[in-house]
Every structure is written in structure tokens, then in C-alpha cells.
Design a protein around this nucleic acid. Sequence first.
DNA 1: TCGAATTTTGAACGAAAAGTCAAAATTATT
DNA 2: AATAATTTTGACTTTTCGTTCAAAATTCGA
Lengths: 204, 204
Amino acid sequence: MAPAGRPKLFDETEALEAAQAVFWEKGFEGASMTELVNAMKIGRQSLYDTFGDKRRLYLRALGHYAEQSIKPTLDGLSGACEGGGTAIQRLRRVLGAWETLQSGSACKGCMLANTLASFDRRDPDVAELVDGLQVRLAEAFEQVIREAQAAGDLDADVDAGDLAALLTAVGHGLAIAGRSRSNAVMVPAAARALAGLLRHHEDR
Amino acid sequence: MAPAGRPKLFDETEALEAAQAVFWEKGFEGASMTELVNAMKIGRQSLYDTFGDKRRLYLRALGHYAEQSIKPTLDGLSGACEGGGTAIQRLRRVLGAWETLQSGSACKGCMLANTLASFDRRDPDVAELVDGLQVRLAEAFEQVIREAQAAGDLDADVDAGDLAALLTAVGHGLAIAGRSRSNAVMVPAAARALAGLLRHHEDR
DNA sequence: TCGAATTTTGAACGAAAAGTCAAAATTATT
DNA sequence: AATAATTTTGACTTTTCGTTCAAAATTCGA
């Protein structure tokens, strides 16, 4: 059942991705509607008709970012993608992916972290969305950690939940460091240290 | 030699601190000049005469934040304050201070991290200031780490510079997590895990 | 083919933004 | 006391912001 009336000339997902890129780079208040309209290559009114106001557009862009950038991490941890491997291998692979991601020259960091740092924390929708993703990420970490501990590839004397929270925080930290001038030095260094700390003590 | 003319009725540092608080909470673009003028309790023109434009005010506020919030950490690491103690004790004390700081209910995170996440990265002055602070922090960490390693309180098989970069990144990460809804849970958990990983392997 | 429904287009709106101007007020120097 | 220098005050300018309006264009169902 096609809707009566003129169909949209633009691809909604494509436009959303363009908006996401702008918001990711400039933040909510740093991105102007004119800028967004230009980047999305759609008319002003089409934007408002399709996405509502600026705040709702940001929410959808952030949701899209989550699907695109957080989900791969979750899948990588659970082994649903990239051919699996042992728990410790999957963990290391995700951390390695983060490293290369945040070491690039024009790195924009992580939209999640940027949102946490800049968005009005009283906004309930944003707070809930962001926090939900954070928790899901931490839970995925916890599961892999337990698995790696059970396999004897990770010291079992550190609580899995605690370590998961630490890795989540490190994710944020790498993303912030990724936006700094010396990201190409700092991020790989931090990643090396983390990889070292995550070795089993018997292997040292 | 007092300057001829009417003296200012306000304390410059006090006004700057008020501005810093607003910028810290709302970010550069999130804070309006009228809002700043009100918080600083000075006239609009006095603001422009004293601090220049909005960007220069932000730079001074950020500099003030560095003096007030980063320096204590540097001093705590070097042992210049808080009565010293061993290197590992100083390290743990700083991490503990970060934990309590980022676990609070109305936590604003870290202005440094917020700036990295939201400010236009092409701005050379901001980039230099922020990166300089990051490097100074990493250097201070590196020195304490070396000391702790020499004292046998920290495993020596992880490179001190790398570990310093990691702790700097963890600082950013805790600050970001500190702005999330579940900061009171996540931040202490991450801190516990980090404290566990930093134990010497012989103590496990 | 007519009409209802939707999108597009481009102009326009009011509000709020950053920043400025000029006169009044206050102080130190002479 | 007079002058020069500075700050204060409050209105004002200009620009940009997010959002909306209304008419033209396009498409589908009857």
C-alpha cells in the first residue's frame, strides 16, 4: 500500500547519514540547520516534514550511529561476525579496531562520547539512549571477559563486571584522545599498555 | 603604578571562575553571552573590555580550569602536595580522587575532555592548549610509574610511557562516564578494575 | 481525469545570537 | 579644580538561528 501523494525524491537513510556526519563532527549546537540542509541535499521543509525538529533529527542520527558503529563492536565481541575465534581473540580484535579507528588523522572520535560530553544532560531522551548503549556495551564486554576467564586466558581475580566498566570507559577515553592533536601517538600507546595489562599473569 | 581612570568594581578572577563554571557545564556554543554576563555579574561591555570576545573568554576559562583542576593532579602525582608517600600510593590516591570526582550526582565531567569532544578541532589555540595539558599529564604519570616500577610496586614489563598514555585516556574515559546517568555505578566499577590491574603480579 | 494527498520550493518570520556605540560615572594625576 | 583615563550602563545593530507559511509540483486512488 503506497502512500498517496508525491513520493520523496531523496533517500531517507542517505540523508540521515549525511546529518549524522555533520552532527558527529560539529555536535548538536555546533551544527546549523542550513549546514545540515546543505549536507543532506534536501529542501528545508522536507527536512522538517521528515525528521521533525533539530533535536529529533539529532536523536535519529545518534540512533543511526549506534546501529552503524556500536553494533559492529557488539557483534565483534559476541563472535557473531568476523568468524568468531576465542573470547580473548575477539576482545583483542575489538580493541585493535578501536585503536586504528581513533588513530586516524581527521578522527572525529565517537559520537556517543561526544554526546555525553556536550549534550544537555537533563534531556531525558538523549540520556536514556546514550546510557542504554553504554550499558549494552558493558554487558557485551562482561560476557566476553567471563568467557576468557573461564578459558584461562584472562586473570580471574578481577571482577568481570568491573573490568567491563573499565573497558567501556577506556573506549570513551580513546575516543576523546582520538580527537586530540597527538592522537596518532597517544592512542596506540594506550592500546599497547592495555593489551599488556590484559595478558594472563602466567604468560608474563 | 596604578592605572589612571575608574577601577573595576568586580574581581577579575571571580568573574572568570563564574564563566568557567558556565562553560564547563554547557560548553562553548551552549553558553550564551547573556548567560555568561548574568553568571559573572558584570556588565556586558565590561566583559568585552576585559576578556575580548567569547572565544578568548573560553580560552582564559579553560586556562583557569587547567590551573585549578589539572595542577592538583600533577602535584598529587609528583608528591608536592598531600604529604607525598610512595609512588604507588600517590598514583592510587590520584585515581581515587578522580573516582570520587566523577561519581557525584551533578557531575560535569572534565572541562578538558568536554573541550576535546565538542570544540572545533581546527582551532589552533584550543588544540595547542588542550594537547599541552594532555602531554603534561602523561609525563607526570610516566614519572610516577617509573618510580613505582623501580620500587618494585608495579610490574616493569609494561612500558611506562604506554601505561601513562593509558591512564591519561582512562582519565578522559572516567570523565565522560561521569556525565552519564549511571556514573555512580560505572565509575567506581572501572576504578576498582584499574586498581586491580595495577597490582603487582606477585601480590595476586 | 478529477481530486486528495504529499513533497518541493523559496521566501519570510520572530527570537536570540554576538558584538558595538556613546553617554554618564568614577578615579588618578596635575 | 581640571583634565585625562578608565569603567559602567543600557540601548542598539547586525547577523544568524530554528522554524513556519503558502503556493506550485507531483503522484496515486477513484
